[in-house]
Design a protein around this nucleic acid. Structure first.
Lengths: 228, 228
DNA sequence: AGACTGCTTATTGTCGACAATCTTCGATGG
DNA sequence: CCATCGAAGATTGTCGACAATAAGCAGTCT
């Protein structure tokens, strides 16, 4: 326990400057401050963080490896954007991983973890009630983050988060939400029920199914947006 | 097709110096020239490749992101070594991905691809006959590489290769092979049969099963080696 | 003899500078 | 008016140098 404090202190001590810069730039991208497809200026970031370009370049190399940016020779790095096709590829993998996650969580979830999952689902219900799409998406990320965390496989957590981040680079995200983020949360609650029942097979199947539906909602949203 | 030529030329043109250095260092690690756990000297690599330390550091950052090296502040980077526990985590994921791979390949394999798979399996049979363990492992890597390639999901290929590379950092690899790399190839041929029959479910199940058995062989080898 | 302390050496972390390349903008000619 | 060419500006790629930190070693004290 006691995992609340060591955030800043430990990071500054263990992670070096490029590591810090990396997470900072990542936040910039994920928060949309660096727009999708946009060119990333090294000098600008350097002066912004008060360092030279060296650490910035190292951080960008790491981000390139995790596919958050792409790099063109002598032109610099750009915030990566993914097509529907690539989003589909990611969803293929995500479905497989979600099935695994559902199984593992159902096997080893604690009572306390179960309560936290239910709490987040309740919060999401509230955002649905007031039509807070932005808040819903934030909680949705948190929910799936908790799930993969509870699966107890750190490498799986890593891979899953990487995939999820990639999905956030989808151009049309957030637009014209396919109509059903209410139904999305009912799926969440079904998953929780299967987990509470300690039914790995069912939990895996439902979570996989949830990913399938999520992908379908993405397609619906993409079609609706591109048709305008 | 025609994916044979653009290896070197395209890499030198598109990928920058750090990119080249990255794959070079990766080869050094994977070929064991840089031993597992060993400290990596930046200046030494720099003079070896005839560059300054800048590009080396960028390459090492990328390799750290793909978990082939770990980095300690003010101490430098070390070739990563993974424990049995972490290898287990990777196998968990690999099983899930192999199931997906089997399904996809069975759905979309071409006749020509099928022939290539069978050819590699035959080659492996030959290495088994002459007890060429090293040759078998090389072909085994190639076989699974081909499979994930034939699945037709580039992102899946990326993720799978990353995981596979991680497995190569296992300390006890190659030692005391659990006794059955012959049986391993019979599993390969069963997978091929299911693929040839265009049976996605069966191919997925068998390839997943193969990963399970492979993990068991790793455990057996680890136990045998550590017991000495 | 063993442990501690201080110095020397090697290595990393960071920076500023220069060359190479690309982009932009204006001028010139059709 | 539009296209093409050329120069100025901006940005990236790479390098060598310096400061900060850790590792190795000798000498000394108990």
């Amino acid at each position: 326990m006691a995992q609340a404090a060591p955030t800043v202190l430990q990071l500054v001590q263990s992670n070096s400057l490029p590591g810090l810069v990396q997470v900072e730039i990542e936040q910039l991208i994920l928060r949309g401050e660096l727009a999708i497809g946009q060119h990333v200026n090294e000098s600008e970031l350097a002066s912004r963080f008060g360092t030279s370009r060296g650490p910035i370049r190292e951080a960008l190399r790491a981000l390139e490896e995790s596919r958050l940016v792409r790099s063109e020779k002598n032109r610099g790095v750009f915030v990566r954007e993914i097509s529907v096709a690539e989003a589909d590829e990611i969803y293929d993998i995500r479905e497989a991983l979600d099935q695994l996650i559902g199984q593992r969580v159902a096997e080893r979830v604690t009572k306390e973890q179960l309560l936290r999952l239910k709490a987040v689902a309740a919060e999401m219900d509230e955002t649905v009630r007031v039509q807070d799409v932005k808040g819903y998406h934030a909680l949705n990320l948190k929910f799936h983050d908790m799930l993969v965390d509870f699966a107890g496989n750190s490498r799986l957590t890593e891979s899953y988060r990487l995939l999820t981040k990639g999905l956030l680079l989808f151009r049309l995200r957030g637009l014209k939400d396919g109509g059903g983020f209410a139904v999305s949360n009912t799926e969440h609650k079904a998953v929780i029920a299967a987990i509470a029942a300690r039914d790995p097979t069912m939990a895996g199947r439902l979570l996989c199914r949830h990913a399938v539906e999520s992908r379908a909602r993405m397609h619906k949203a993409a079609a609706a947006t591109s048709a305008e």
